[in-house]
Design a protein around this nucleic acid. Structure first.
Lengths: 193, 193
DNA sequence: GGTTAGTATGTGAACGTTTACTAACTGGAT
DNA sequence: ATCCAGTTAGTAAACGTTCACATACTAACC
């Protein structure tokens, strides 16, 4: 589903609301107020509140796919591609901090079972892609083989998530781009063969 | 604040509600229904809904402190203590799966600023304790020093959180205790000097 | 031993507010 | 003339909370 300009604005505002306050404050009333509209106006653009969250999730999925796609397009050593994906995600959060508040908060989408399923699908896809790269890195003797690829994947993604979580819990203070680079350098040193 | 038997039941039920459904379904009505009480009865035990969440958080804080306390009491090599803390947390989640749904979902407590502050305090305390152990491990030449202690800490906690998140997203299927042990073995191998 | 007072825990019925959402109407652009 | 994007003014249901009242049990006094 392609979003109109207004729809995009609404999704954006919803994300900001969740980011600044919480999921419980994402109400039609608050959302309309933030956009300078009446509540009824929102229903011209979305069938209901849930559809707004669906659109938000679809956007996340598209972004994640895009990041993976562009990185995997240009070829390179698996371990370097892992680093590029790692840093591309970091850049994404730096550019749009509110995303950090939403994308790693699975709780937000737990209400509706189809939303929860979509969240899991995104996560599974991301993990699978990373796992594939790690395995290829091991086969190419670039990544250590004395630790299972599955665990290495969990470590890499877990570190990324933790880094972003610490950043947002601290009110987005500090240089995430820099700590992201540092983290990847350390991570690379530890997983390299 | 020490909880009465009934208060403990209420907090427990609230945790289960969040776990099985979501934070948005944690309402006084649902909570009372689950306990076989009327809504008004809950106000005999807590001043309001928020106080129930406060009690829940305090319980988490106490548990985390207890885990750290008992492990740090018996002395041993820092790297072994890290492992014991890691596995003690895993055991905690295995014993009470609903905790996994709540404890790593900071979003749940974002509504109230004092709750959010408490969440951050718990997290900071845990991180600080871990960081201290890692630093001591480095000084004792048990843990590699070519990667900053801060990053090693982020990796360890990030891996733990990711492991638990994967487990709960999969409906608590699979043997978390086992994958926890495996993870720690791999982690140990990677951080050891 | 029996009355009395107090405490802890419950109920049912309301409260005012907020929730997501809808129907009917309106002005402007094509 | 029609559609698009907005409005005003509602809806029923759910929200957290409070109130007056009822029950069971304990402790103290006569």
């Amino acid at each position: 589903m392609e979003l109109s300009g207004r729809q995009q604005e609404i999704v954006e505002a919803a994300m900001q609301l969740i980011s600044e306050r919480s999921i419980q404050e994402l109400t039609i009333k608050n959302l309309a107020a933030r956009l300078g509209l009446t509540e009824a106006a929102l229903y011209r653009h979305f069938r209901g509140k849930n559809d707004i969250l669906v659109a938000m999730l679809e956007q996340f999925a598209r972004r994640a796919d895009a990041v993976r796609g562009t990185v995997l397009a240009r070829d390179g050593a698996p371990i370097d591609l892992i680093g590029e994906i790692f840093l591309a995600h970091i850049r994404g959060f730096v550019q749009r901090p509110p995303m950090a508040d939403v994308v790693f908060s699975e709780e937000i989408f737990r209400n509706d079972s189809t939303l929860a399923a979509t969240v899991q699908r995104i996560m599974t896809t991301n993990t699978a892609a990373m796992l594939d790269l790690v395995s290829r890195g091991q086969k190419a003797r670039q990544i250590r083989t004395d630790v299972h690829a599955r665990l290495l994947t969990t470590m890499i993604i877990g570190t990324l998530r933790m880094l972003v979580t610490q950043w947002r819990m601290g009110g987005f203070a500090g240089d995430l781009a820099r700590s992201g680079r540092d983290a990847w350098h350390g991570l690379r040193r530890m997983i390299a063969a």
